[in-house]
Write a protein that binds this DNA or RNA. Structure first.
Lengths: 296, 296
DNA sequence: ACAAAAGTGTTGGCGGTACACCCATGA
DNA sequence: TCATGGGTGTACCGCCAACACTTTTGT
């Protein structure tokens, strides 16, 4: 094209002359909530091990939030996308490549980082725990897989003249080898005649850095919704798995018991049966399944 | 807290000394897809006017993409959130405040802006068209409300050994007073054993600046999904409306005819009847409804 | 009278909840 | 043999598609 602008420059000439202005720019970090599912050891030879939902946190070794726990993440570099940055950090922390990765939300609150202007472009990652060793990172003190509990404490709805304010208070508990972090996060839905918005607020927070309690709450809300609506949770499973294992994963994510028969019908189209069975369990063997590529 | 870091500084001392490093930072723009619904004039006194889905575009007055059409937006400033930036720009362009605004996605492809490193934190806005004059902006040449058509052209699914690649090709047509922009956007879902991702690609593009065709496609996908699953579309309606009008809005968004009886049952809980009726309409008058605050 | 739209009722399928029941295994 | 989990069938309810039908208005 040869269109010229007010100064008579073509686009090519314009771009050659272009120098970035020096107004202020934010740093942009890619922070990732990495989910996996582990299982406990079992005492009784008959009983199945229980599933636990876990996320990876890194202990901060410098200010700000020295000693607090933060999501793995880092600054996006000019020659990569935010998603590539998230994947790069994820590989550095866990040694795993080729992982389910989904953009969650971009947090831009002013003052969310006390140092300077930093936005967080956050991601959700799902990894099957058989793909890496749980002793993540070199330094066991600096990184740990925290078991997640996320429970609705209270729900209230205040009706206004035209609109309402609805508040959901969640308790977020993260625990790993003696360490225990607790936070209370409110999800606040404000509806007015012409608008509506959802925001998260941290009511109390013991041990998490920055606004990462918000990001984790947001990730858990998304994980739960997607588990109900899509085959998302299958990314947490190994190649082959039993339907009861899959149900346990659903249950630990949704924090709710499900009925076996209904669950099996619900996921019937998402999986394909194999010819393999579990062995040496203290009860009837169970058929192994794998993901179904024809689904959706 | 009085913890000190390796240099023996407390957090307060650290923050006082802190100076932002001078590695490269991106500019972050907030770009908004502003939807509204207008209606055509009708010839026949009996017939109802038809609804049209429209979005606001701004004609670029300088390089790059001189003369192309772009989403309204601007750079986020240090003292505001991205959402506040979107709301500010929206007010500047339309004169309307207090609008439904939802974060859509953050686009970070390298080279998406030929000048320099710019990320786009994009938003969806929904406005009832009675709240502003359609002749947006002072300069009719510089801004226009484009009617939107977004149709699936082709869908293909390629099954791999373990996984698949599914491609949906959409034709995006935007038209306003003689102007017509056309683009073809592919939504590509790649599924592998351990990961899955969705990305958008612009196959052809006539008249839209930057990667804004992608953003618009992404916004339309979201708008359609949310219209099916939530009461989102009600934000496009005036205070009072008939159920047929609401149904027309759903139909123009989903690009699909709906059955009256089923539609009325579906939205029954989202609206409340009023005691008012339409008048002088050439046929039986219709009851007016308003949004229901008790819903959801 | 009649075109256009407003508004309602009926049927059948599908998916979810709830519950009941039988089967297979290894210590 | 028996605790434990594997696995299936049935009844009910609510949501949705599809279709048919009645009602009400302005000209």
């Amino acid at each position: 094209m040869d269109m010229v602008d007010r100064e008579g420059l073509t686009e090519r000439e314009f771009l050659e002359k272009y120098r970035a202005g020096n107004y202020e720019r934010p740093s942009v970090a890619a922070d990732t909530v990495i989910f996996t599912v582990t299982h406990t050891e079992t005492d009784n030879y008959r009983k199945l091990p229980e599933k636990e939902l876990r996320i990876l946190l890194i202990r901060r070794g410098g200010h700000p939030f020295l000693g607090k726990w933060a999501l793995p993440g880092g600054f996006v570099r000019p020659e990569e996308t935010a998603e590539q940055a998230a994947a790069r950090e994820l590989y550095e922390e866990t040694g795993v490549n080729d992982v389910y990765l989904e953009q969650l939300y971009t947090f831009t609150d002013v003052g969310r980082d006390p140092r300077t202007w930093v936005m967080s472009c956050s991601y959700i990652a799902l990894i099957d725990s058989s793909r890496f060793s749980l002793q993540a990172g070199d330094d066991a003190e600096a990184a740990a897989w925290f078991q997640v509990s996320y429970r609705l404490l209270r729900e209230q709805k205040e009706l206004l003249d035209e609109g309402y304010i609805q508040t959901f208070s969640y308790e977020l508990k993260l625990s790993a080898e003696g360490k225990e972090l607790t936070a209370v996060i409110d999800r606040i839905v404000t509806a007015k005649p012409t608008s509506r918005s959802t925001q998260y607020a941290i009511t109390s927070n013991d041990g998490l850095a920055f606004d990462h309690a918000k990001i984790i709450a947001c990730a858990l809300d998304r994980l739960r919704r997607q588990t109900n609506d899509t085959d998302l949770a299958l990314h947490l499973m190994p190649k082959q798995f039993t339907l009861t294992e899959l149900q346990q994963v659903y249950e630990v994510i949704l924090d709710k018991e499900l009925l076996k028969a209904a669950f099996r019908r619900k996921v019937a189209d998402l999986v394909v049966e194999t010819d393999h069975y579990t062995e040496n369990v203290g009860h009837r063997p169970s058929r192994l399944y794998r993901r179904n590529w024809e689904s959706l």
